[in-house]
Design a protein around this nucleic acid. Structure first.
Lengths: 113, 113
DNA sequence: AGATTATATACCCATATCGGAATATATCAA
DNA sequence: TTGATATATTCCGATATGGGTATATAATCT
């Protein structure tokens, strides 16, 4: 067998950074394909293809508007990822009081609070 | 270019269901390779290979113990995933009061509370 | 040293990927 | 209809994957 297709589930679809960027933009509202291509400095065919993957796993919806197609985000499909990751939340929350972790936070410039 | 390697980042490493299962088990404590293989009905080489990927992205640590190698989980590396997904949390939380979403919850047998 | 156990690595193969480039489809305008 | 714009699809090529199987390495025991 080979690697699981990107269209298998949101986990695989979202593993591609470009697609996360697209979702980041769609989270703010409806966007057309060329709109996204311009904002992300991508070529139109690649954007169409990424959107096709996102559509396949239900992460986006489309609406025809004249000769354009406006995409919106469907965040619900991210919930399984959230649920899975959340179970490990304590693994980085509980250790904030440990000195080594604290120092790491300081070094990386993050807010330890 | 081809698809981003599984070792590129935790997003890609965790897109594989087997690796999520391995992390689920390691979250409960240290495990040896054969231990994991037995619990997941996988062959030893596949487990070693999955662990290699998880190690490459820092999601697990190893400790030699005699002729065995005990793996532990390092949850910190999941934080970027958590942070990214959490930004969309309102997209499924805010809509719980909408009728269609509510019905979906009921149909899927989930707790709408 | 030789035997046994635990784990890692190497090799093969079918499959999917992502970007690039070209082309097809669709919608509108004149 | 012809032309322009917006999007989707097709073909290509380099690359990595994950399972299977066999083999190599490592540590322990007698």
């Amino acid at each position: 067998m080979a690697r699981r297709p990107t269209t298998a589930d949101p986990f695989n679809a979202v593993a591609e950074p470009r697609r996360r960027q697209i979702l980041d933009l769609l989270a703010t509202g409806e966007r057309s394909v060329n709109d996204l291509a311009g904002l992300l400095n991508l070529k139109q065919p690649q954007v169409s293809k990424h959107l096709k993957v996102l559509k396949a796993v239900g992460l986006v919806n489309v609406r025809g508007a004249g000769r354009r197609r406006l995409y919106t985000m469907n965040g619900d499909k991210l919930k399984p990822i959230h649920d899975w990751v959340k179970r490990f939340e304590r693994m980085w929350a509980e250790r904030l009081d440990r000195l080594d972790e604290y120092l790491k936070e300081l070094q990386s410039g993050e807010d330890p609070g």
